[in-house]
Simulated scan of single mutants.
Amino acid sequence: MYVSAHEYAQALAAAWCDDRLDQISEAPTGGDSLAPLLATLIDDWCEGQRGLAFAWRECLLLAARDERYAGTAQRWRLLWADFWNDACARLGIPQVAMLTERVFDGESYMHLLRWRRSVDRAGLEEICRAWGNWMHGRLAGPSPWREMARECALRSAPLPELRDETAERIAAAAAAVLARMGVGGVTHRAVAAEAGLTLGVVSHKFRTSADLLGSAFEMTYLQSVPSEAIAQAAGTDGDVHSMLDRMDSLPSTENFRLAMAELMMAAMRDPALAPFAAQLRYLRGRTSRGVLQALVGRDRPVSVADAALFSSFSVGQGNAHAALSLADRQAAGRAELEMLLGFLNRG
């Protein structure tokens, strides 16, 4: 029954796609048409079709843990691949369709996180304009709305707590439960079992469910990419192939991807987690910034918008390749990144 509900959501999404393609049947051709259309479609999808947008994301999470949803998740991927192939063909730029699909996936995910509506919409416009620049071989440049939002998110972020060894152990256990079972599985009892501690100890260190989830988020982010990997990446400036080799050698981040997806979905819906929304949306890209800077070279400064855009592109890749083996994910990701750099480095 649940699979049937997702298939119905896909049918409604396909109708939305057909309607939008009809609306751009006489679209102005050329790369300059892409950015405003991308921003419009992301906002239209996330605001006007929010229920369908959630259905898409929930299906991807279900498929990661239950093979019964694998076929349905693949049909979502094919739906968006066909849509962006058609849309970019109508703009006369079919060569950017697959890469744009990745950005649509990642940035539409972020746009479901609501903070301040006007700022969110302006920041989305800046990101999509940056994508248009990338396709012309230029970096993003200034993004005042996103930079302002980032400063606000930094001020709202709580200062790191000084934790003892037991609290760190509980936080690590919470992150493991989150990745394996989702937000609903992060209970005090489940985390206590994971950590090998009593329920009373866990409840004493983290009194509320929001506190426990917050610790899972913090630990998940800290575990995402070892800091030394970024230092090594920075040392490969100007050597793209060496940089890609280093990225391929990093540990799999699939558990991190699932844990972050669960937290983001919760922050989109649960008022108790609303403070995370601005931080998840506007503080992302700290890891991506170092990687992108190494890929494009030190003589081309990477901005806040560039880092966020590269993060969205990476999120889209993770979703697109989720069903593949680790080796195939690395190969597909590498090929797409080389294609992206072919655009970005041609300026």
Rank of each mutant, 00 (worst) to 15 (best):
A5H: 11
Q10R: 15
W16V: 11
D19C: 09
R20G: 03
S25Y: 01
G31P: 00
D32C: 01
D32L: 06
S33Q: 10
L34D: 08
A35M: 10
A39F: 03
A39E: 07
D43P: 01
W45K: 09
C46M: 04
G48T: 05
R50Q: 14
C59D: 15
C59Y: 01
A63T: 03
A63N: 10
A64N: 11
E67R: 15
A70T: 12
G71K: 08
T72F: 03
A73I: 04
W76Q: 04
L79F: 09
D82V: 06
N85L: 14
G92R: 07
M98L: 12
L99V: 13
R102S: 11
R102Y: 05
F104K: 02
D105I: 13
G106Q: 03
G106I: 04
E107I: 15
R116A: 14
S118M: 10
S118H: 09
R121N: 02
A122I: 04
L124A: 00
L124F: 04
I127N: 01
I127L: 15
I127H: 08
R129C: 02
N133A: 14
G137F: 00
L139A: 13
P144K: 08
W145L: 04
R155D: 13
P158D: 12
E165K: 09
E165N: 06
R169N: 08
A171C: 11
A174F: 03
A175L: 11
A175S: 15
A179C: 13
G184S: 07
V186E: 09
A190H: 02
A190V: 02
G200R: 06
S203N: 13
H204A: 12
K205C: 08
K205E: 11
K205Q: 12
R207I: 11
T208S: 15
A210C: 13
G214Q: 05
G214C: 11
F217V: 12
E218V: 14
A233R: 03
A233I: 05
D237Q: 04
H241Q: 14
H241K: 07
S242K: 14
D245I: 07
D248E: 13
P251T: 03
S252R: 04
T253L: 08
F256P: 00
R257I: 06
L258N: 06
A259F: 07
A259I: 09
M264G: 06
A266I: 04
A266N: 02
A267W: 00
P271Q: 08
L273D: 00
L273G: 01
A277N: 13
L280F: 14
R281H: 09
Y282S: 00
R284A: 11
R286F: 10
S288E: 13
V291W: 04
V296L: 06
R298W: 05
D299F: 04
R300H: 13
P301N: 06
P301A: 05
P301W: 09
A305W: 01
A308D: 05
S314L: 04
G318W: 05
A320T: 14
A322H: 08
L324F: 06
L326S: 15
Q330T: 15
A332F: 00
M339S: 14
L340C: 05
G342R: 01
F343N: 01
N345E: 08
